[in-house]
Amino acid sequence: MAIVTHLSQLDLNGRYSYADYLTWRLDETIELFRGKVSLISPAPSLDHQRIATRLTGILYAQFKRQACQLFAAPFDVRLYDRRKSVVANQDIFTVVQPDLCVICDTEKLDQRGCLGAPDWIIEILSKGNSKKEIQTKFELYRESGVKEYWIVYPFEQAVHQFVLDEEQDLYRLLNMFAGEDSASPYLFPDCTIDLQEVFAD
């Protein structure tokens, strides 16, 4: 398979697998959503980076002595429908780079990142990718079995907390935290996040 070094070599209307993705040596950062190429915004906003850094610090302190592990973007997560079995790289069509994710099953980790659904994903919205995070990734995370998904709204200083109802196969909105609240993940109730600190100017 030929090495791809320029985005122009790809058919942006085509469908690609993780096997294809492994042959790409692009300057651009991309994700795959059900085989479709999706460009990541080249430079997140100052607010996005500030929030990501603060959350990383808080969560690193929380998980550094636990079995569950924290990872921050760029970090490849290969997703597949949890009701299907994984056969090979050519059978995986979704590769995402969540802003933050926590993975408790170390069997999912390899040198290329994570194969399968993290337990908890946090995405911090930017003006250019809100639809992608709210709609496309929401569905991808649900069908792959991400148990808890937080969407962070920097401009509104708010966090929406979704928890997977596996029996009904849907996300339930558990909490809508405001900037002055303390927030705790459903999966890790001993972890407390001061959102005033996260959203401080």
Rank of each mutant, 00 (worst) to 15 (best):
Y21E: 04
L22C: 13
T23D: 06
W24V: 11
R25D: 11
R25Y: 00
L26Y: 04
D27C: 02
D27Y: 00
E28C: 02
T29F: 02
E31L: 09
F33I: 14
G35Q: 04
G35F: 01
V37K: 09
V37N: 04
V37H: 04
V37C: 06
S38P: 00
L39M: 12
S41W: 02
S41M: 10
S41D: 09
S41I: 02
P42W: 09
A43Y: 05
A43I: 08
P44I: 12
S45V: 10
L46H: 06
H48S: 02
Q49G: 03
R50A: 07
R50E: 04
I51R: 07
I51L: 11
T53N: 07
R54H: 04
L55K: 07
L55G: 07
G57L: 14
G57E: 12
I58F: 00
L59Y: 01
Y60K: 03
A61F: 08
F63H: 08
R65Q: 14
R65C: 03
Q66Y: 04
C68V: 01
C68E: 01
F71N: 13
A73K: 03
A73T: 11
A73M: 06
A73S: 14
F75C: 04
D76I: 05
V77G: 08
R78M: 15
R78W: 08
R78C: 14
D81A: 14
R82W: 13
R83Y: 00
S85C: 03
V86H: 03
V87D: 09
V87M: 05
A88M: 01
A88S: 11
A88V: 00
N89G: 03
I92S: 04
F93W: 13
F93G: 01
T94C: 01
T94R: 03
T94F: 05
V95C: 09
V95M: 10
V96I: 15
Q97H: 10
P98N: 11
L100V: 11
L100T: 12
C101E: 07
C101S: 15
V102T: 07
V102E: 10
D105I: 11
D105E: 14
T106E: 14
T106H: 13
L109W: 08
L109I: 15
D110E: 06
D110R: 04
D110N: 15
R112V: 01
G113E: 09
C114S: 10
C114W: 07
L115T: 13
L115H: 11
G116Y: 09
G116M: 13
A117R: 09
A117M: 08
D119W: 12
W120V: 09
I122A: 04
I122R: 06
I124T: 04
I124W: 07
L125R: 02
L125H: 01
S126I: 14
K127C: 00
K127M: 11
G128T: 14
N129C: 06
S130N: 00
S130V: 13
K131T: 14
K131E: 12
E133I: 15
I134A: 06
Q135W: 08
T136W: 02
T136D: 12
Y141K: 09
R142P: 04
S144C: 09
V146T: 09
V146M: 10
K147D: 07
E148D: 12
Y149S: 04
W150S: 07
I151K: 04
F155V: 14
E156W: 05
E156R: 13
E156I: 07
E156Q: 15
Q157H: 12
A158T: 11
A158W: 01
